[in-house]
């Protein structure tokens, strides 16, 4: 009866435990493929060191102070840039999603800027803001703001119109409808948009640090590459992936905790 079925059923849920086991299997498969490729020596070990070498390097690197300071510097940068972006994008997105004239003024311009490749702005940012922290915050801000503001506006527009109408018939005025209906209803979706943008913020952080920095994860990767220390690069790449995954899980767990009401019921 309770035999786990091995057939793939369209969109059917599976038990959490099995989900986790399969996730671990996914990682194990990657590791196995990596091990096989490096053992078969198709790729020069200078570029693709074996998992064992990387594991050794990892213990080395983590016993040193440098990685922790790199991590801290990068984390502070990304958090400042991301928070600045969120603080502006949330109210702007809510305004764009709430009022069509504001949408008409701001959305097409935002879409335009969104398609300008952000790394192409680096030369201008460095000229205007220098190579200090400000240019890195600015790059992360630009990289995430224009995405986030549109996602927030979308979430606000997705709120069923009838929820607004109900509020009106109960005596709510415009401001109250925005703060008590639109914002509240869109919150879980907006929180999810923040999760996605946080991932992009890390990407732009590394881009910024690769170009001009004297500390941070991206800077260190560039430095390792100058000395052809590929095992160390791999350790940093794995660390970046792990940070991303961790933050993602954190956002998701918080989302579930904060917005229990949004879970689909019966």
């Amino acid at each position: 009866m309770n035999q786990p079925s091995l057939t793939l059923q369209l969109r059917r849920n599976i038990p959490t435990r099995r989900y986790r086991v399969l996730a671990v299997v996914g990682f194990a498969l990657c590791l196995a493929v990596w091990g096989l490729i490096s053992a078969s020596a198709i790729v020069d070990p200078v570029f693709l060191p074996s998992p064992v070498t990387v594991a050794h390097t990892m213990t080395e690197i983590f016993s040193d102070q440098t990685i922790w300071s790199d991590l801290w510097v990068s984390f502070v940068r990304v958090t400042i840039g991301f928070l600045l972006s969120a603080v502006v994008a949330l109210p702007m997105g809510i305004l764009i999603g709430s009022f069509k004239p504001i949408e008409a003024i701001l959305q097409p311009v935002t879409e335009f800027v969104r398609y300008v490749p952000v790394p192409a702005l680096i030369p201008i940012l460095m000229v205007t803001l220098g190579i200090g922290e400000e240019s890195k915050w600015a790059l992360i801000f630009i990289g995430t703001y224009f995405q986030l503001v549109l996602m927030v506006a979308d979430e606000v527009r997705r709120v069923p119109y009838e929820l607004l109408q109900v509020a009106q018939t109960l005596g709510a005025k415009r401001g109250e409808i925005i703060s008590r209906v639109l914002w509240r209803s869109a919150m879980p979706g907006i929180f999810d948009a923040l999760r996605l943008c946080n991932g992009w913020a890390w990407t732009y952080l590394i881009v910024a640090e690769l170009v001009a920095a004297n500390e941070g994860l991206g800077f260190r990767i560039l430095k390792f590459s100058r000395f052809l220390q590929t095992p160390k690069i791999w350790v940093y790449l794995i660390l970046l992936g792990a940070i991303g995954l961790l933050l993602d899980l954190l956002f998701r767990a918080l989302n579930r905790r904060l917005f229990k009401w949004a879970e689909s019921g019966k």
Binding site: P160, E162, L163, V166, V181, R184, S185, M187, W261
Partner: peptide, 9 residues
Amino acid sequence: FQNYTLYPW
């Protein structure tokens, strides 16, 4: 309203 319009939060 015809549809369910309670505030889920």
